[in-house]
Structures are given as C-alpha cells and as structure tokens.
Design a protein around this nucleic acid. Structure first.
Lengths: 214, 214
DNA sequence: GTCTATAGAATGATAGAC
DNA sequence: GTCTATCATTCTATAGAC
C-alpha cells in the first residue's frame, strides 16, 4: 500500500468518475428529449451545471458522448437476457425476461428512448452493434426458442416475431411514455399500474404462444 | 361552366397540389431519417429538387411543414380503426385492425417513424392531438373492448394494455425496420414475410386474450 | 410562383488563462 | 482539471429581382 501518493490520486479519480457519471446521466435525458441533433452540448452542460468546455474535456466530440449513452442501455438489455439460459421452462424464461424488460423500461426510460431514436434513424452511429452483438445475441435466443418448439413446450411460432413482440411491447412503455401518461389522465404510471401492465403483457404473450396457463 | 378562365386556373391549382404533395412526401422521409432538428429545409429542398425558398412559400415555417406530416399519418391510423365499429366479433374486429395497422407500417414507414419521434420527445408539436382526438378515440374503443369482456367473448384483460400491445407491435415493424432488416440478413421483408408477420402477431394476440382458435 | 443572395441567430469545437 | 472568450460553420427565414 503506497500511503502518501494514493489518497489525492484516488480523490481525483473519484471526482473524475462522478463527473463522468453526471455528464452521462444528463446527456441521456437531453438526448432522449431532443434527439441527437436537437440536443446541444450547451443544454447538457447547463443541466449538469458545468461549463460546456468541460464536456469536451471528458468527451472530445458530441458523437463520443452520444455513443457511450447508447452503449449503456444496450448492455443493460443484454444482461437482462440471462433468463434464456438460466431458466428451464419457456414460462419461467419468458416471464422473467419480460418482467426484467418492463423493469428496465421503468428505470431507464431515457436510455430506451435514445436507442429507439437511434434505430428509427437507421442506426447511423451504432450500426456495427446491430450487425455484430445484436445479431449474435438474437441467433442464440432463436435457437433456444426453436428448441422449445421442437420439444412441444410452446406453439410453433416464428421466434423472430415473438422476440419483436416482446421488445416492442416492453419498450413501448418507455418510448411512448408521454402518450401513455396522456391516456392515463395525465398521471405517471404508479407501482400498481406497472405491476398490472407487466402481468397483462406476460399473460397475453405466454397464452398466445401456448405456454403455461397462469 | 365558365369556359375561358377555368382552364389556366385549374392548371395552376393542379401544379400547386402536385408541388405540395411532393414537398410533403419528401419532408416525411427526411424528417423520419433525421428527426425534426436533424432534418434541414435545405436537405428537403434538395431531395425535392426545389429551391429552398419555395418550401417557405408553401409552408411558412419548418414547424408548419412538420406538423402537416405528423397529422397525415395520425389521420391514416384513425381511419384504420373503423373495424372496431363495423365488425361484429372480437376476432373479426381485432384481426382486421391488426392487419390494417401492419399494412400501414409497410406502406407508410416514414410517417410512422415521424410520429414515433414526436411522441418519444414528449409530443412538443402535436400535444393537443394526444389530449383531444387520441384520448376520445381511445375511450370509445376501450368501451368496445369492455363490452366484449362483459359478453365473455374475450378474457378480462385491461383494454389499454391490449391497445398498447397492438400499437407497439404493429408500429415496431415500421419504426425499427432498420433493426429488423439487419436481423433479416440485411434484406427488406418480402411479401411472404409480411404475411407471416401479420399472421403471427394476430394469432398470438387473439389467442393471448382467448378470442377464437385459428 | 420561382429563384438568388443574404441577414441574423445558434452551434460544435477550441484556444489559452488560471 | 476548470473556465471564459471566440472562431468557423450551419441553419431558418426573408428580401427582392424576375
């Protein structure tokens, strides 16, 4: 343990990480609310209460900052897919996966919106992620679903469309939250409503593919 | 019939409509690909092969042009919902509605993307549409679904979440088309694949709510 | 109605003092 | 590492000739 030089170094490093986290969290929200072009470095700096030049110190360009925001939500979604491997039955695997995806839609609505924006515009920045990581991820999960079908555990549905339906439905609660709020008497969904939504979505999809009777 | 003055007037009026339609169609695509802020009047003008000033002649501001693009897709979706009123059984009504929504996702992918963008960003421009037209539309359809439930024609599911699932899933094929293409070996979905997708989505949702056995 | 030229404002990025 | 001041660019919108 080096006793003298370490403490100030750690303090500096700690501050650095705090600043980084602050910038990333603020940028995620501003990018979600205004899109890549609509979000300005000035607006992010103002919200984070930092001088604009400091943003460029940590992230050389606006695109660098944006890319890290997009990668973050993508990795969170990847982690949520463990259930496909660790859970045995389709009911357990899919209901866990749907529940996790709904929880992420509630906890990371801004990240989900940024991702949606990026894909809608043709994924100009994270095109490589779609072609490598996402493609590989999808293929392995398709194999799992095909095995369930072969075993007769679920109806013969196209695994791709099942995955699309889960992605679309769960992310809708984050991406279209403003529309949902308007139709919910202007109120943000509360705990009970999130639980009901999760249960309802899970139930329709599981019943829809003939997996388990809740 | 005024025989002399009419012809040049009609010709002019016809040209005017053609130009309007050209601008709207081009703007829809550019807004979809780059977002409101990312799309520039110059880019729209270039794609439409018109001087930029002509756009401002037909649409005073960028926001006016954008708003008309958004209203267009919204009205197309409203028309697609006739099936709730004209069809008798839940199976007929919902399968027709889902099919129409899927057809619109294929025929108007840019409009769907512009709408998604707008709602993701909190609907700053068409906020009033959500609070008036969409709210009224949704409430009447919720009543129809609640009647089906009361009659025992479908399972007791929350009508809102059923509608959200239909909207999310069908629009996903337009809004996330780039992701879907990437996972489809880089190919645009062909006729057969659209038919399969429609059938698969319809089947899962109808079975999921206990309506009809296909 | 169409087009060129340009005004006026905003933005990404950086230089350079501290 | 932090901050102020500023450059170079780009964008919306309009003026004014045709």
């Amino acid at each position: 343990m080096p006793p003298v030089a370490e403490k100030p170094l750690n303090r500096r490093e700690g501050l650095r990480r705090e600043t980084l986290a602050l910038i990333l969290a603020t940028a995620e929200r501003i990018f979600a609310e205004h899109g890549f072009k609509g979000a300005t470095m000035q607006a992010i700096a103002d919200e984070a209460k930092l001088p604009k030049a400091n943003l460029h110190y940590y992230f050389p360009t606006k695109q660098d900052l944006y890319r890290q925001v997009v990668e973050r939500i993508f990795n969170i979604w990847l982690d949520a897919a463990d259930s496909f491997d660790t859970q045995g039955t389709p009911e357990a695997a899919l209901s866990t996966y749907i529940r996790k995806k709904m929880e992420i839609s509630r906890s990371h609505p801004y990240g989900s919106k940024v991702w949606a924006n990026e894909v809608i515009h043709g994924a100009p920045i994270i095109h490589d992620y779609l072609e490598t990581t996402l493609t590989e991820w999808t293929e392995t999960r398709i194999k799992v679903i095909e095995r369930w079908i072969a075993e007769g555990a679920i109806d013969p549905v196209d695994p791709r469309h099942l995955l699309y339906m889960i992605w679309a439905t769960t992310q809708h609660y984050a991406d279209f939250s403003h529309q949902i709020e308007t139709l919910n008497e202007g109120q943000v969904m509360n705990d009970r409503q999130w639980a009901e939504a999760t249960e309802c979505v899970t139930r329709i999809i599981l019943r829809g593919i003939g997996a388990g009777q809740l």
